[in-house]
Design a protein around this nucleic acid. Structure first.
Length: 312
DNA sequence: GCGGCGACGACCTTCATACG
DNA sequence: CGTATGAAGGTCGTCGCCGC
């Protein structure tokens, strides 16, 4: 993802274009939903079958007030729906909507990252999902819809097909959370055991990794594009280095293999957001990712790693 | 037994400023 | 340019209580 060109062939200032890509990224509204500490846990819990309120509260060890708020929010966002199983008193069980079920690929890819990069902290799905082609435990790869080759980070580049706006849009709204990953006093050992879900929950970390995936490498560039306080950024960079996701090279930072490996899950979340979020939340206008080997847009789909069969 | 509501407290983020 | 510090304000989980 090195060249930043318009479809006309004219080049545009790279840093401006990167800022535009990052600031309009679908990841902001997606993380507003999935970045909540309990959201993925709830979705993961009911991915195979509906569950009742009390069952969820016990399983997730979440207070009833917090669970009630999360379920309302997920229902409002369209990820889950409730089904009444008792009229007096009114009692409900909760199940995924089509929109919620579409997160299956994201969950599987996050689980794969945990399995590959953590030691003994992977969180299996309640009942592992099976490939409907080969019936083995489902492991996914993200491939190009046109040529079926892998959509790896270095096989794509963003292509701008309209003028950049006069002003780069401001950051999209960002709901703060109080969930820090690791306290300052924690050792580097704990940073190495942070799961993909936990990186996701800490939205600054996920947005910083996103910026690096778009080729932003310097402290000041990340700070200005993400509009992040310098102390917060310094803390996250330190943590990401401790976790082996980034390393510092001279005056810049570089993504390591462990960080690049988060890319498929981030792609899956972005794809989910583009398909399911309301149009007014999708700000990615005027550019698309190009798949260099086949020359088509990088439209993604999922394939089973074992048998290569396409997964919906 | 389920779930809403308000009070409370922990702690996270922001902001301003300063330093090497 | 990159990082550190501390004050202030904001967010969110927990708890206790209550109504249905």
């Amino acid at each position: 993802m090195s060249e930043l060109r318009m479809s006309s062939g004219r080049s545009v200032p790279g840093s401006l274009f990167k800022a535009y890509l990052i600031r309009t990224s679908i990841m902001y509204p997606v993380l507003d939903i999935l970045g909540d500490p309990w959201t993925l846990a709830i979705i993961r819990s009911i991915i195979n079958r509906p569950k009742r309120f009390v069952c969820l509260a016990e399983e997730l060890k979440i207070s009833r007030a917090a669970l009630s708020a999360r379920l309302d929010r997920l229902e409002e966002q369209g990820c889950i729906t409730r089904r009444q199983y008792c009229e007096t008193p009114p009692r409900y069980e909760y199940l995924l909507t089509e929109m919620g079920r579409a997160l299956k690929s994201t969950l599987v890819l996050l689980q794969q990252w945990n399995f590959e990069w953590l030691e003994g902290r992977e969180q299996p799905l309640p009942a592992p999902l099976k490939c409907h082609h080969c019936n083995k435990d489902l492991k996914l790869t993200v491939v190009c819809q046109h040529c079926s080759k892998s959509l790896s980070l270095d096989s794509m580049r963003p292509l701008l097909f309209q003028q950049l706006p006069e002003e780069i849009p401001p950051l999209q709204s960002y709901r703060r959370t109080r969930h820090a990953l690791v306290s300052k006093e924690s050792s580097s050992v704990s940073a190495l055991s942070i799961t993909a879900e936990e990186w996701l929950r800490d939205r600054w970390s996920s947005l910083i990794v996103g910026a690096f995936l778009f080729g932003v490498h310097r402290f000041n560039d990340v700070q200005s594009i993400l509009d992040i306080a310098p102390n917060i950024l310094a803390g996250r960079l330190e943590l990401l280095q401790q976790a082996g996701i980034l390393c510092r090279v001279d005056e810049a930072y570089k993504l390591l293999a462990r960080g690049v490996a988060l890319y498929p899950a981030i792609m899956a979340m972005s794809d989910w957001g583009r398909k399911w979020l309301p149009a007014d939340q999708v700000k990615e206008v005027g550019w698309r990712m190009l798949h260099i080997p086949c020359g088509n847009w990088a439209d993604q789909r999922y394939a089973c790693l074992e048998c290569g069969g396409h997964i919906d």
